[in-house]
């Protein structure tokens, strides 16, 4: 059973297309003839060296590749130092959906613009710290359905898969005439006592 979230970008992947249309700031290293139209603030026919523009990522990727570099990409603001600090402080508190719909997808492109690997580390850090959040959500999603709005697309898919599996298991546990259940007294506690706090 191949997992549905085994996602590898390819030419026709809608998600990849959507992720790569994010505006990415970049600076031109060469004059580009007849491309003045890309710069809406200038009337000239050619793009001058040193122009700073925000272009979609798919264009930037090609411009920043090859033997002759046409432009130098910069990090979009959500991957810059200030935002990285926020993520480092507490990644679980963040509305990643507002940051970017494709935080991780975009991040894995963007991180190549960052030589020091900070972006790479923050992606990993964000994912690993938020995993608990996703897992807990998937296990008890009925408590607050709006909370999944804080997840980015990739996390949301993980959540959905996890949630479906969880629901199946719950139905299975309940479907026999006499379900396996915890003592009613335990259920009546608003919160179940942890068995042994440091063990579990």
């Amino acid at each position: 059973m191949l997992p549905s979230s085994s996602y590898q970008p390819n030419y026709f992947s809608i998600e990849d297309i959507l992720a790569t249309q994010e505006r990415t700031p970049c600076k031109f290293l060469q004059d580009v003839p007849r491309m003045g139209k890309l710069n809406p603030s200038a009337e000239e026919k050619d793009l001058k060296v040193g122009t700073e523009l925000e272009l979609p990522l798919w264009l930037v990727l090609d411009g920043a590749a090859g033997r002759q570099l046409i432009l130098a990409p910069e990090l979009p603001k959500i991957y810059r130092e200030a935002y990285r600090e926020i993520l480092k402080a507490d990644a679980t508190a963040i509305d990643l959906h507002k940051f970017n719909l494709y935080f991780y997808e975009l991040g894995s492109y963007i991180k190549h613009f960052d030589r020091r690997g900070d972006v790479h580390n923050i992606l990993l850090h964000t994912f690993t710290t938020r995993f608990r959040l996703i897992m807990d959500l998937a296990n008890n999603a009925d408590s607050d359905p709006t909370i999944q709005n804080k997840l980015d697309t990739l996390e949301r898919r993980l959540f959905k898969d996890g949630h479906n599996a969880r629901m199946k298991l719950n139905t299975w546990l309940l479907e026999s005439g006499i379900p396996l259940k915890a003592a009613s007294m335990v259920d009546n506690h608003r919160k179940r006592k942890r068995v042994n706090e440091e063990l579990v």
């Binding site: 996602y7 590749a65 990993l124 690993t128 990739l154 993980l158 898969d161």
Partner: peptide, 26 residues
């Protein structure tokens, strides 16, 4: 599928090196 999928995504984040890296280095 939560754990295997999550691990797979971590693997992707970790290993996601594209040829572009080499190309930008010229």
């Amino acid at each position: 599928p939560l754990l295997p999928h999550a691990l797979e995504q971590i693997y992707r984040i970790k290993s996601n090196k594209r040829a572009i890296l080499n190309r930008t280095q010229g």
